[in-house]
């Protein structure tokens, strides 16, 4: 469902992403890990058509990011880093806005809002403005945003950042529940998260993929500890 071929992105002298290729199929949850500034967010933004690669391309659900940006965006639910949302809107009007942009109106819109509100447990804050919500709720509104219209591909940039342990667990559970019928990419800093939600992961460092495998394989190579493995592949190359 997601085929990424040799993506490259240059910002001035910096090679932010330098030839990244991978595929994610339906039922896969791919964990994207790497140090800060490794190129995770840039890669995800290119896949979501928010910035254009200097080289390479990607196909999402059969749509090319360079040729059919609208088709790609119809197939993707994207959660940006730090969950920027329209603070002055209420939860329900924001979700309604997203529904309408995705072409859901009338009864369909009502049904879809009901569905995502239930999935993300938002019923308590429906009529609250987003700027007054706690971090956990904001994140959940962000997740609800990505689920509207049930896109087959989800790209979630650090969905558990800033959440407390219970909220983290909720988000992970949510992702696990959808894993079987979607292709999902999740970026994270937290190594334990790989075990909890991903069946595959990629370590990205200085714009390149330095490791690709299952969390279990990583642990094995790190002599039982994922963080040892992570340090070896990201520090060893400095």
């Amino acid at each position: 469902m997601i085929e990424v071929t040799n993506l490259k992105k240059v910002f001035g002298p910096i090679r932010a992403v330098d030839g990244v290729s991978f595929t994610v199929n339906q039922g896969d949850v791919l964990g994207f890990i790497g140090p800060n500034g490794a190129g995770k967010t840039t890669t995800m933004r290119m896949i979501a058509c928010l910035t254009r690669p200097n080289e390479g391309t990607a196909r999402i659900n059969g749509h090319d990011i360079l040729k059919d940006s609208l088709g790609v965006r119809k197939s993707i639910g994207y959660l940006p880093e730090n969950t920027p949302l329209y603070g002055e809107m209420t939860t329900i009007s924001f979700l309604g806005f997203v529904c309408e942009i995705r072409g859901l109106v009338g009864a369909e819109k009502v049904r879809e809002i009901e569905r995502v509100v239930q999935v993300c447990s938002l019923s308590e804050v429906l009529y609250q403005t987003i700027e007054t919500l706690s971090k956990g709720y904001r994140k959940r509104v962000g997740l609800a945003l990505t689920l509207i219209g049930d896109p087959p591909v989800l790209i979630l940039d650090d969905p558990t950042a800033g959440l407390d342990p219970n909220q983290k667990r909720d988000v992970r559970r949510l992702i696990n529940n959808m894993a079987s019928y979607k292709a999902i990419i999740v970026s994270t800093h937290i190594l334990e998260e790989l075990d909890a939600i991903c069946n595959r992961s990629i370590v990205i460092h200085r714009g390149r993929i330095v490791a690709d495998g299952t969390p279990a394989e990583f642990r094995e190579q790190g002599g039982g500890r994922i963080d040892d493995f992570f340090e070896a592949v990201t520090r060893g190359r400095e």
Binding site: R45, L70, P80, I101
Partner: peptide
Amino acid sequence: KSGTIEVLFSLPVT
């Protein structure tokens, strides 16, 4: 400034 432009253009709107 608030970054909502990322949300807007990740949705299918030209």
